[in-house]
Write a protein that binds this DNA or RNA. Structure first.
Length: 448
RNA sequence: GGCCUCGUCGUCUAAUGGUUAGGACGCCGCUCUUUCAAGGCGGCAAUACGGGUUCGAUUCCCGUCGAGGUCACCA
């Protein structure tokens, strides 16, 4: 039994696309599961469109996701080999040189190489879909090289797969129509036919092939937004594959163990950002507070230092943010009150006092101020609650609705927000000094 | 249009000849909180349609419809 060999063959003509990453992931998982080998191959035969910076980004992005390989190849470095085999098939009469007018410039005459198409039925067994039949007659004698020394994609791919000993070709469904012509080239070359598995496409909300126009399709954009590579891998794997049961939480290592072609889906899968966000949040919550904070710092677009209170706010961020980008937005939005004293409105401060009047609200806050004196400078939220909640309960005993009548102005005095974490958590994060100062300020506003 | 592929809740999917068709995301409600968020509990929601085969079809067969892919001297 041959050792499994798969390939990751991106074309460096654009950024690292989500679809490219998923196909790479499946090739990686399949090979690793079988204890096989992965070849990374930069398909840069189109010299006009290929760029080194794209190749760099693709490699960096794949590594970021945790996807690695055992061999690295670049098609632009193998032109001599393609030429050699081109000559061979021409000499054997399986292909021929054809003088034609250039497609892009009808003034110029070129000598392209065409494969002699036997025009037969090609049937191949797809590991996902079963037998697929193609009539290759319609293809005609298709072009396999721009010239005797300049092989085209289909020829280069077949040569590389043959030389690399590739046993399994796992790629997008959009390659099904290409398969027959590649098989024809294989047969001309006398190469062994590998196994094929065509993956369902990733679709956008309109159920069309996910493209740049569909929104964010670059893996690096997701990294910049503050997604975790573990989350992206987990989500990507479950788009078009499932373990056959109800498990959904998978690390890369667990995926390697669980992966099998039987679990690959046949129909296209729509990209769903909401689900990705939820997966990401789950992975963010697995981080310890220190890890979370480090990742948050690493996700900053600029080098601005985060205030130390942000470290203590991590538990809050964990329950509110689904990405590190959202966490940053929270710190400068809803949680900005942790860093600077808010502007307070007299109206909002009095929102819950009802018929009872300003003196009522003020008395509540003064009681808080008094009780706070007994608290340490940095109490934890539980301690603050233990000291302050009885006050609210006492108010409640006096008058119906009294508990909220005290808690609301307290929370608003500390946060300046109609929505915020609870007052005890805020008190703990802010510290006794700052909290008391804010309560005093609120009392002053009420008294004015 | 030719050729190819696909068709279970809105989305990702499980079950496959016999289940009240299960889970997850989202949505809705309740509950905790007299603010949010998180948590807990519950709910709505699907086998595209029409024929067969069968005691019985989501499952097997045929057709219809629908969706997607692909038709390069790109990859």
């Amino acid at each position: 039994m041959n050792r499994v060999v798969t390939r990751i063959p991106p074309s460096p003509t654009g950024r690292l696309h989500i679809g490219t990453a998923r196909t790479a992931l499946f090739n990686y998982l399949f090979a690793r599961h079988a204890g096989g080998k992965v070849i990374f191959r930069s398909e840069d035969t189109d010299r006009a469109r290929s760029k080194k910076e794209y190749e760099d980004e693709i490699i960096e992005g794949l590594h970021w996701l945790g996807i690695g390989w055992d061999e690295f190849a670049r098609q632009s470095e193998r032109t001599a080999r393609y030429t050699e085999l081109l000559e061979k098939v021409i000499a054997e009469g399986k292909a021929y040189v054809s003088k034609e007018l250039a497609k892009d410039d009808p003034e110029r005459e070129v000598e392209v190489v065409r494969l002699k198409n036997p025009g037969k039925e090609v049937v191949f067994e797809d590991l996902v879909r079963g037998p697929i039949n193609t009539h290759t007659g319609e293809l005609g004698d298709f072009v396999i090289a721009r010239s005797r020394t300049d092989a085209l994609y289909h020829f280069a791919v077949v040569v590389d797969d043959m030389d690399g000993g590739v046993t399994h070709i796992i790629r997008g469904e959009d390659h099904i129509p290409n398969t027959a012509r590649q098989i024809l080239i294989q047969e001309a070359l006398g190469a062994e036919r590998p196994q094929y598995a065509h993956l369902p496409l990733i679709l956008d909300e309109k159920r069309a092939k996910l493209s740049k126009r569909s929104g964010a399709t670059s893996v690096m954009d997701y990294r910049a937004e503050g997604f975790l590579p573990e989350a992206l891998v987990n989500y990507l794997a479950l788009l078009g594959w499932n373990p056959g049961d109800e498990r959904e939480d998978f690390s890369l290592t667990e995926l390697v163990g669980a992966f099998s072609v039987e679990g690959i889906q046949k129909s296209g899968a729509a990209w769903n950002r909401e689900k990705l966000l939820s997966v990401n949040q789950r992975w963010m919550r697995k981080l310890s507070d220190d890890q979370f904070f480090a990742a948050l710092e690493a996700s900053r677009p600029d080098a601005t230092e985060l205030a130390s209170v942000a470290r203590r706010a991590v538990p809050l961020l964990k329950e509110r943010a689904r990405t590190f980008g959202e966490a940053r937005a929270l710190l400068s939005g809803e949680l900005a009150c942790l860093f600077a004293a808010p502007e307070l409105s007299r109206e909002t401060l009095r929102a819950k006092e009802g018929e009872r009047g300003t003196a009522f609200t003020k008395a509540g806050l003064e009681a808080v101020l008094h009780a706070a004196e007994a608290l340490p400078e940095s109490p934890d939220a539980e301690t603050a609650k233990a000291a302050l909640m009885p006050l609210a309960d006492a108010e409640e005993a006096k008058e119906k609705g009294g508990r909220g009548a005290m808690l609301w102005p307290l929370r608003y005095a500390l946060s300046g927000q109609e929505r915020s974490p609870d007052p005890f958590t805020l008190f703990a994060l802010l510290g006794r000094e700052e909290s008391s100062a804010r309560v005093k300020k609120a009392i002053a506003i009420l008294g004015a």
